[in-house]
Design a protein around this nucleic acid. Structure first.
Lengths: 248, 248
DNA sequence: GATCAATTTGCAGGTCTTTGCAGGCTTTTT
DNA sequence: AAAAAGCCTGCAAAGACCTGCAAATTGATC
């Protein structure tokens, strides 16, 4: 096998699998690992692959390492757009925190007149920009991790509110475990919201769909509407429709 | 699994769920926790995540409010410095909002362990930077003008708190009218604070000393301590000392 | 086809990286 | 204050890497 051939083969493998190990290639092609290493080094010099200890990665891999400012901002914007259409004048709206909710706050039409209840500082700040929105901040201990208020007081307050709709920035959701979280206090707050709201809407990027965390907020059937950046007829969402959720 | 792959995976998880635990990752990826820790440390060095005890947080999530132009910043800093000396470990501290209070928040020594109650969003955000401060946010309707929560609920909550000390960002003060405000709702909140705190401290730049507004918060004798950027023996403050206030 | 220079390959050895683990320390939780 | 969890340091083994070199291959030329 010629050097050029071999390198072409390697390149194909890298692009196909996104990664290769020198040891594997050496076996497949039946040349020494040194040769593979030299090939990888050359391809890396040409900028066609990324050399790492033990093998190489495809170029595309590099981009996913450079995290953008807010993760999946575009997706979240699209979700926010859809979510905003559910809010009507005069409604009582309950929201958690999180970057998706912030995007929702930004996406609200400026003439919307509604009352927003929130436990999130950052969401509150965002709502303040809107001229016609009344904001009720739910007080209690402030969690430094989640940047929302948590605790018994807050939960009690939430349960007093007869909210028309509740938007949950969602950490993980799947059909068996329902909506799950990684923080006990946050879970309790969300749980309170779910229990008191007429309609529960989960906002989540597709990447988090069908993932689970350790603490359950509520079962899948307690959620009425699921919003992702995908089209509702996407394959990934089939199961949720089957479970009776409205998918937007 | 290659090291870079693993780190990319970790980064993705962090960005997805805002927070990860080393123990979880170690299980998922099936490497030792040490390796995870080393990865997290590296990613943190690169500034892609924030390392915390037991895991890591996503970078983009913890964003701060951009500070606007603050009027007479230097004076307020000096006031904040003096005010910070009044706070001791374990105290319950009550604060309003306003730029002077924000400076106070920034001036707090990092090892101070205390509990802060506040009605101000921006102050709360600032307090969150401090590792050892517990923050209780007092909820209610959010006033867009004052950027603090106002209303009966908030007042009732404030009165329940047995605060050791209360810092009032002050709009106007003179010996005859006492502490005055121009907003009815803000006045009520401050009034509640004055009535419940052991010690009431008014923070004000010299420019506002001997000015009055239309709504009284409290008489001059309900204030225990007055802090300005001036030296306590300054001519301007004589009258307040004569009235029995502690002037710093 | 034979020859020779240039290139390529494999190998030996020594070095560097990565990983897991032990022991002691620090932080957090109870 | 004690117990648990997480962290840090140092260390050792495994694997990957690099350097230099000699053997093998290539290909250009006669």
């Amino acid at each position: 096998m010629l050097k050029k051939e071999r390198q072409a083969y390697i390149l194909r493998q890298v692009n196909l699998h996104n990664r290769v190990l020198s040891a594997d290639l050496s076996q497949e092609i039946k040349v020494s690992e040194d040769t593979i290493r030299r090939d990888l080094a050359e391809l890396a010099d040409m900028g066609k692959i990324i050399k790492v200890h033990g093998g190489a990665l495809s170029q595309g891999y590099h981009y996913s390492l450079n995290a953008q400012q807010i993760y999946s901002l575009d997706e979240k914007r699209r979700i926010a757009q859809k979510a905003a259409t559910l809010i009507e004048d005069g409604m009582f709206v309950l929201t958690t925190g999180g970057t998706t909710i912030i995007e929702l706050a930004k996406a609200l039409p400026p003439d919307l007149k509604a009352t927003f209840f929130t436990v999130s500082l950052t969401a509150a700040v965002e709502y303040m920009r809107h001229p016609n929105i009344e904001i009720i901040l739910i007080g209690d201990k402030l969690s430094k991790n989640a940047q929302i208020t948590v605790g018994g007081e807050a939960q009690a307050k939430i349960r007093q509110i007869k909210a028309d709709i509740c938007f949950l920035g969602t950490n993980a959701i799947d059909t068996t475990h329902g909506l799950t979280e990684n923080d006990w206090e946050v879970m309790q707050i969300k749980k309170a919201m779910v229990s008191t709201a007429q309609k529960v809407v989960s906002l989540t990027i597709a990447e988090k769909v069908n993932t689970a965390q350790r603490i359950q907020v509520c079962g899948i059937h307690e959620i009425h509407t699921l919003i992702t950046e995908l089209s509702p007829d996407n394959q990934l969402l089939k199961n949720y429709i089957k479970e009776g959720l409205e998918v937007i």
